[in-house]
Design a protein around this nucleic acid. Structure first.
Lengths: 144, 144
DNA sequence: CCGAATCCTTTTCGATACTG
DNA sequence: CAGTATCGAAAAGGATTCGG
C-alpha cells in the first residue's frame, strides 16, 4: 500500500466516526507536533542531550516560558525524559526517549520532502501572488 | 543515512544560520502543514476531488472561513488546483496537484507512526498525569 | 454555490518579575 | 540554574452577514 491508499483508507474510517476531535488520531498527533517549537526541540535533543539553558541557547528565539511548556508536553507524551541532578546549582538534563527517537524517521521524511520541493513551492507562490496582483491592479484601474 | 543522522546534520546547518525564521526550511514547512486544517483537506482531496460544499460536508466542523482560507493557502503553494466551471450556479472543483500528491507518502508515514505509538503515548500521559496528581495532593495535605 | 468582509472569542505566545 | 506566575499583545479561529 502506498501513501495515497493508506490515507484514503484512514480517511473513510475517520469520517465514519465524524472526526471526533478527541479521539481522531491525526488531529491529536498533528496538533501536538505542529506547534511552533515541539519538532525543533526534538531535533535539537536528537543532536545531543541537553540542559535547559543549553536548549535555550541553541534555539535562539524561544522564550523560557515556551521552552518550559513544550518540554513538559514532550515529557508528558513520553517522547523525552527529564533527569534531575541534585547538585548546586541544580542541573536538569533532557534526553530523547525511545518513543521520541521513533519519530525521527517519519520526521526526516517530511524534512526531505520540504527540501526537494521547496523551489517548486516558491515558484508556485510567486506565480500565484503575481496573478493576484494583476487582478488587483486591473480592478483599481478599470472602474474609473 | 537514517532519520537521526539526516536531522542531526540539518540541525547544524540551521543553527549556523541562526534559524532565521523567514528562510529556515523546517519552520516554514511545519508552520504551513501544522495548522488545524491543511492536512485534513489534503487527505480529503486525496480520497477524491471535491467542490467547496462537499468538502465542508466531509469535514464537519470546519467553518466556511477556514475552509476558504486554507484552500487558498494550498492553492498558493501549488499543492492543489482550482477549477471553475461557468455554470449556474457556479461550480468550483479542487484537486490535488502533483506537488500535493508528493506529500502523501511522508504524511502517511507520520500517520502510521501515530497509529503504532498511540497506545504508548496514552499510557505515558496517564502515568505522567497520575504522578502530577500525587504531588498535588501531597502538597495540599502535608503543609497543614 | 462560492466566497469575501466583518466582528468577536479563544488560544498562543512573549516579556517581565519572582522562587527554590 | 531551572523553572513558575502573571499580564498583555497578537494571532487564529468561529459566527454571521453580504455579494457575484
Amino acid at each position: 500500500m502506498n501513501g495515497s491508499e493508506i490515507l484514503a483508507q484512514r480517511f473513510t474510517t475517520w469520517q465514519a466516526m465524524e472526526f471526533n476531535e478527541s479521539d481522531c488520531l491525526i488531529r491529536n498527533v498533528l496538533d501536538r507536533l505542529g506547534d511552533k517549537w515541539t519538532m525543533l526541540i526534538v531535533i535539537a535533543l536528537n543532536a545531543s542531550p541537553a540542559r535547559f539553558s543549553k536548549l535555550q541557547r541553541e534555539i535562539p528565539d524561544i522564550s523560557k516560558r515556551m521552552l518550559s511548556q513544550t518540554l513538559r508536553g514532550l515529557e508528558r507524551d513520553g517522547l523525552i525524559t527529564r533527569h534531575v541532578f541534585a547538585t548546586a546549582p541544580p542541573q536538569v538534563e533532557y534526553r530523547l526517549a525511545p518513543l521520541g527517537r521513533s519519530i525521527l524517521d517519519p520526521l526526516a521524511q517530511l524534512v526531505l520532502w520540504a527540501e526537494i520541493q521547496q523551489d517548486e513551492i516558491r515558484r508556485a507562490r510567486e506565480s500565484y501572488d503575481d496573478s493576484v496582483n494583476e487582478i488587483d491592479s486591473a480592478a483599481t484601474k478599470a472602474p474609473r
